[in-house]
């Protein structure tokens, strides 16, 4: 079942093109424009190359869009005639959904790795403390896969989930200051660092890159709490769909 869903996800070439090629192109594009620019981090004044911020930001942004991997697969299995065929089998439908979620997370993780490796080895992005960075990236992947699935299961519509996720995916990077600098006021700074889960991920990773444990935890712990919350929210929703 896991293998089947993994092969199934891997054949969605269009999704891979969007989720790998787009961030890579955007990173390359912005890096070309602002090559050599170093920004001063808002966190504690340690300078971080702009390319690094771009890499982290776009990798996190496209994890939001990557949530469609799981909810679109779930939608095609459980909001279509396929549902009857699957539920007619003795297989536990919960394990089917978990299989879809885990394979989607794995594919999203592999996509993130490709983006990071491209930025590191082709563009020369500095990415120290990579294991910790990857840990936060994984947490962000888990969060967004669960988020998309919860929205889809709650709304009962893949289309609605797509609209909500796409809107969030467009706004979150702006609020996190990825596309353009935001005014340096305390309120905006708080929004930039903590308002969205994507911002939390970015804050955590920038904290790791700066060796600022407090900042890393300030981003990671709320994201972890939100992920756990979504996990518990997901349980009754799966039951509703599969019963």
């Amino acid at each position: 079942m896991f293998k089947f869903n993994l092969i199934r996800s891997s054949r969605d070439i269009f999704a891979h093109l969007i989720l790998i090629a787009f961030p890579v192109l955007l990173i390359a594009f912005f890096n070309f424009i602002f090559k050599g620019t170093a920004i001063v981090s808002e966190i504690n004044g340690t300078p971080i190359p702009y390319l690094t911020v771009l890499t982290v930001g776009f990798a996190l942004t496209f994890q939001i869009y990557g949530s469609s991997l799981s909810f679109e697969t779930m939608g095609s299995d459980f909001f279509s005639p396929m549902r009857d065929r699957l539920l007619a089998s003795p297989c536990n439908p919960r394990s089917l959904i978990i299989s879809i979620l885990t394979t989607s997370m794995l594919v999203s993780f592999l996509q993130t790795i490709v983006v990071l490796l491209f930025a590191k080895f082709v563009l020369g992005a500095l990415l120290p403390s990579l294991p910790f960075v990857m840990a936060v990236m994984i947490l962000s992947i888990v969060f967004h896969q669960l988020l998309g699935s919860v929205i889809m299961l709650a709304s009962g519509s893949v289309k609605t989930a797509n609209i909500i996720v796409s809107t969030y995916g467009s706004i979150a990077p702006m609020l996190a200051g990825l596309y353009f600098p935001l005014p340096d006021t305390p309120v905006i700074l708080a929004v930039e660092k903590y308002l969205t889960p994507m911002a939390l991920g970015k804050t955590a990773i920038l904290g790791i890159l700066e060796n600022n444990t407090g900042q890393a935890l300030a981003g990671t712990l709320p994201l972890l709490a939100l992920t756990i919350g979504l996990f518990f929210l997901m349980r009754p929703m799966i039951g509703k769909v599969t019963s």
């Binding site: 079942m1 089947f4 092969i7 199934r8 054949r11 969605d12 065929r85 699957l86 089998s89 003795p90 297989c91």
Partner: peptide, 15 residues
């Protein structure tokens, strides 16, 4: 998106 063999084996695996 899957082959005939993959389809057959998947539905068999559910049992």
């Amino acid at each position: 998106e899957m082959t005939a063999k993959e389809n057959l084996e998947f539905f068999g695996s559910l049992y």
